[in-house]
Structure formats: structure tokens, C-alpha cells
Write a protein that binds this DNA or RNA. Structure first.
Lengths: 344, 344
DNA sequence: CGCATTATTGAATACGTTTGCATAAATTTG
DNA sequence: CAAATTTATGCAAACGTATTCAATAATGCG
């Protein structure tokens, strides 16, 4: 009491065993007699003892911590974070906690130093990378990091080179799902709005799904219906404004993200075009605001809980040296007012 | 190269100095010759050396980490997190990073073990507590923790007992701001919607601001206009539904949070009441969805950046043993469609 | 130039664990 | 019942850093 904090030696002294035994008992080692283990645990509880994480980390060379790196797009300095990640964040921390891992969070731009900054410094045993970005740009970098021994999982990207590191939605199926829904409503000239270039492989896949749905329905794929838009609300607005001005005929709109869809909806509303009566709109992501928007937005929903669990469990598997597989998670169609016609 | 990771000894060897000098040099100690310091730093850079955080933490007994504890309301098990915190979260991590602190994140219910779980275990040097809850319930607990030596700051609560620990908005001024705006629009019978009981001191202050605005405008304070509502969208909906049924006359509505306001707006819309023509509505918080709602919601906005900086800097000050002061931060009125009448 | 300071450095230790190895006690086996 | 095995425990050595104390080199002062 007189001196500093409670250590495992104090427990050992009180229990009449060696410090080594205390350490083993608290970690549920089979090397210790169940009876002594319980006695030790009881004493530890009474003294409100906690293992010193720094000491444990130093000795075992494991921090039992995961670094969650949200990297921001350097071009947009508004610190608005995609709310979609908030949900992911919650599930990640919960899953990690269940596995006895802490979660460190950091907002960063892509850096060469991830590996050293987190793993080598023993701040974290592995990293989860989140955030929309020009993944194509990063693939090479990530492959190199992986080769250097970096342990990480990344959401949204799917590249053969990064086996086991990637968790993503079934983007192709998602695009197909959205388009099929529009087709089933009798829509024939469906705009695809977004950047389906190599910069955004996931968007590209959504476009492929769009095409597949057309083929299966026997509809022609008109390239002029594929409109470029950055992943921002204002960009969606602008794109639709130009579209209307061009006089191109269309009766539906598949926006590759909800953000784009919001912009599109605003522009349509301003132009006096009725949604969904004249134009049906589908988004992608199911941002919280999607249900608040007027009209509420039909969209493709990720199961953030599944995604979070996959990200965490793959990463921990990697840390433990197991062999893990990349996963593509199913997506769901969330029907709301911008499409159905009858619902709110 | 043959053996393990790079340590300060390796740097020392290569630089021809002792390990002690390396440690000092990397920490910019004045005890080391500037010339040797630069040489050492250069070598460290070349070898991609990073200080082992566990070792440093063990030796210095500081983890250089802040734990961000978001505690969930146990009664609502939907894992929807208030998006307001996302913004706060971003600013907190950025501020902490600038001060060389890591941020650990955890979703937890109120627990007696915070102190031991984080501080004693050397997982974090201090804690930031976030989340709406029945603060009154917690005040006693937090006071005890504080007495036991827990270092923490908390957002939203303001209690004399927790000197230096609390950062909050100027709730009274905020309530006044909102109400004055409604009064300036010619509204005379303004509903106050929320739980202004002892359970929510911050809501109580908003109500006091509401009263103050009335007094200053020479308007009577009618207690029957003070309507109870839980802090949930559905609760706001229900409350307004009952209100309409009761036939009570009113021309404006001040919801103590945006969530409540959303519910209120939905109910008004469903009942065919025009906002803002017949009823003006003001919320509180400026959730991201507030601008997406139709009509967009006039509300009181917190400066999350200021709040985050205050939370982090007060906490770090506390950790360093400095004397810190609680703060009340200014709030801002964000005028949108639910109120003005002319704007979108 | 001799002494008092100051500026730099190194040797050694402690931080609180985890874990390999040795040992003693208990149990099984032939 | 002796030998072989299993079960429980303790001893002691890391893990990589920060820091106290002593020591040396460099500088200033009269």
C-alpha cells in the first residue's frame, strides 16, 4: 500500500505463490492448478489488479491493439467523414473488444510509413484501412507493404494481389440488383451516374452489374447513358443539370453512391421533375440520410456488421499467422420512395 | 540484420555512442550535443527505426494514449450512433495526434471500472467521455472517480463538482438563441419539446434559455407549452401527435434535440400542417441529416472543433498535472427552411 | 595557468510482464 | 515397488526503453 501500484508480485506474495504462477493463472494457462488459479484470480479481483499493458506488450511483442486508419482524401479538406464508416466503426470496435483487442483510431492520408509507424513501433499488431479513395492508385503500394510483412485488411477494395487482405461488397451483384429493380419497374433508359474508371474498381464492378442486368433483360446497353460524376453531392447535381440540358432521354437513374444520388435528387427537384413518377432513382451505400431525404432514397445497403466482423477476424487471423481468405459480402436492396412509387 | 528488429542499441552502435544518448537525442533532450543529435536522427531515419511504444510506456509509465469512451444507452440496443459524435471524433483524433497522443476508442456502458480498466492498466493516460445519457445519474459516480485520481474530460455535462473535467455548450444561451429567433419571426406560442428534468441538466438549461428569451420579449411563460419527450425520433413523433390531438394552440416548436425535431416534423407533415408557414420548428445539434430533411431544419450548432480541442487539451493538461478550467463553448444558430420561410 | 563551471556522455538500473528451463511432487506403469 | 511419466510450480532471463548518477571533456574566470 505504501509504495506504488499493485503488481503481479503483490498478488503472488498474498497468494503465497511465485509471480510466474500469477501470470499464468491470470492468462488461464493450463499449466496451473485450477484451484490455485481461482484463488489467485480472486485475490487479483480484490486488489483491483490489472495487467500492465506496456509491460505485457514489451515482453510478448504484441500490443493486442488494432489500428483503424481512416484516410482522408487530401483534395477535399472539409473534415466531413462519410457517416457510413461510423456504423462500421462501431461494429469494428465491438468485434475487436470481443476478441480482447483494443482499437486505435487515426485519420491519415496514404503514407509509406504505416508499417513502421504502427507495427514496428509496437503500437498496433495490425491495421484496418477504411475510406473511399483512388484504390487503383494504392494497390501497388499496398502490395509492397504486404510483401514487407504488414498485416492489414482493407474495406472496399478487391484485388487478386492482396489475397486475404480485402473485404468488399459484391459490387457487381449490387449493381445488378439495383438495375434489375429499375427494370422491373418498367424503366428502359437508365442513366448510370458515377466514375466507373480504373480509379474506382468497385464502381466499375457496379457498372458491370448494370450491364449484366440489361443483358439478362434483353435491353440494349447504351454507352451514352453512362455519365461521369465525382463522388460528391455537388458533382451529382452538376452532372444531372448538364444531363437535363443535353436533352438526353431517360427514365431512371442509378447513382453509384448515395452522395451522388442526393445531388441528383436535388437537381431533379429543382427542375420540377417528379421522383419517382417521371424518374426513378437508386443509390448505393444506404447512408443514414437516405431515409431522411425527400423523397427517401432507394439504395443498396451494405451489412456493416458483417463487414466489420470480416475485417477484424481476418486481421486477427493474419496476426495469429493463420491463412485467411478475402471475402465478398452480399448486398441488399433497400426500397424507398425514390423508386417504388407507393412507399414513403 | 540477421537478428530481430532495430533497437536503440543498433542506432547507438552505428553512431558510436551509448544507447542512453540515442534515447536522449531522439527525444530532443538538451543534454545532447546538437551535432550528435542530428547524426543520430539521421541514422535512425535511414534504419527506419521507431521507438517501441510498449518499452517506452513501461519505463515512463505513460502510454501517450487517450481513451475515447462512447457509452451507449443500455436501453436502446440499436447500434445507431449519434452522427454528431463522428465529427467530434475526427477533431479529437486530429488534435490528439498534433499533441503526439494516440486515441483508443471504445463503446461502453457506464462502468465502475473505467479507472482501472484504462488508467491503471496503462492502456491510456486519460479518458474522454462522450454520449448522451442521464448525466445526473452519473455525476456522483464521476465525482468519485475524480477523487480516486481518474483523469477524464466529459462533453455535455456541466457540474460544479467536476471542476476542469467538463466541456459543454452554452446551453442556456443556445436555448435563448433558438427561442429569440422564433420570437423575432412573430411566433408567440412556442412549444418546448424535450425532457427538461434533472435527468438532463443540459436540456434544463436550454429550457431556462427559452424562458429567458420569453421574459426579455415580454412574453408570458406558459407551462402547458412545455411538453415532455424522450430523446428519440419516435418519441418526438408521438409527442406531437398527442399535442395535435389535445387541441392546444401553438405556432412554433423548439425541440431540444434534432432527433426529436425530426420526429416532430414527420408528424406535422403527416398531419398536413405546413412548415414553416403554419408552424416554425427549431432543433438543437445540427445533425448532418438536418440539412437533408425536408424542410431542412433550423437548428443550434455546436462548434465540434472547438469542443474537441477543449476536451483534448484539458485532458492533456490534467495528465501533465496542470490546473485546468471547465469551459462553456458558444453555440450558433443555423437558419434553414423549417423556420425562415424563404430559404431552402 | 589552476580552479570552478558547464556541457556531453556512458554505465547501470528499473519498469512489470511472459516464458524457457529446471525441479519437485504426484501419478501411472510394468 | 522402482521407474517412467505427468502435473504444478519456481527461478531467472529477457523485452527495449528512460533516467539517475558518476565521469570526463571543454570552457570560463581570476
Amino acid at each position: 500500500m505504501g509504495s506504488g501500484k499493485t503488481t503481479s508480485f503483490d498478488i503472488a506474495h498474498k497468494a503465497g505463490v511465485s509471480q510466474a504462477t500469477v501470470s499464468r493463472a491470470l492468462r488461464d494457462s493450463p499449466l496451473v492448478n485450477p484451484k490455485t488459479r481461482e484463488r489467485i484470480k480472486q485475490i487479483a479481483r480484490e486488489l483491483n489488479y490489472r495487467v500492465d499493458r506496456s509491460a505485457a506488450g514489451l515482453r510478448s511483442q504484441h500490443s493486442k491493439t488494432i489500428a483503424l486508419l481512416l484516410y482522408e482524401d487530401p483534395t477535399t479538406d472539409d473534415s466531413q467523414i462519410n457517416p457510413f464508416f461510423l456504423s462500421l466503426l462501431g461494429h469494428i470496435t465491438r468485434t475487436a473488444a470481443a476478441e480482447k483487442y483494443d482499437v486505435l483510431i487515426s485519420f491519415q492520408q496514404l503514407s509509406d510509413d504505416w508499417l513502421h509507424e504502427y507495427q514496428i513501433s509496437n503500437r498496433a499488431d495490425g491495421m484496418i484501412l477504411l475510406g473511399y479513395g483512388n484504390y487503383a492508385h494504392m494497390a501497388a503500394k499496398l502490395t509492397r507493404l504486404s510483401d514487407e510483412g504488414a498485416r492489414f485488411t482493407i474495406f472496399g477494395l478487391s484485388t487478386a494481389d492482396l489475397k486475404g487482405h480485402t473485404i468488399s461488397g459484391q459490387n457487381l451483384e449490387g449493381g445488378e440488383l439495383a438495375t434489375k429493380h429499375l427494370v422491373s419497374l418498367g424503366r428502359k433508359r437508365i442513366i448510370f451516374l458515377g466514375d466507373a474508371s480504373d480509379e474506382h474498381p468497385e464502381f466499375k464492378l457496379r457498372y458491370e452489374g448494370y450491364c449484366k442486368a440489361h443483358q439478362e433483360a434483353g435491353l440494349p446497353i447504351d454507352p451514352s447513358l453512362k455519365i461521369l460524376s465525382e463522388n460528391q453531392e455537388t458533382a451529382g447535381y452538376e452532372a444531372v443539370a448538364q444531363l437535363l440540358e443535353s436533352g438526353l432521354e431517360f427514365d431512371a437513374l442509378f447513382a453509384v453512391t448515395d452522395l451522388i444520388a442526393f445531388g441528383a435528387l436535388k437537381c431533379l427537384r429543382k427542375s420540377g421533375i417528379k421522383v419517382p413518377q417521371e424518374i426513378s432513382v437508386v443509390g448505393f451505400d444506404d447512408l443514414p440520410a437516405a431515409s431522411y431525404f425527400s423523397p427517401s432514397l432507394t439504395t443498396i445497403k451494405q451489412d456493416t456488421r458483417l463487414a466489420a466482423e470480416a475485417l477484424v477476424k481476418n486481421l486477427i487471423g493474419m496476426i495469429k499467422g493463420e491463412d485467411v481468405q478475402s471475402q465478398q459480402l452480399p448486398l441488399f436492396l433497400k426500397i424507398r420512395g425514390s423508386c417504388g412509387g407507393r412507399k414513403t
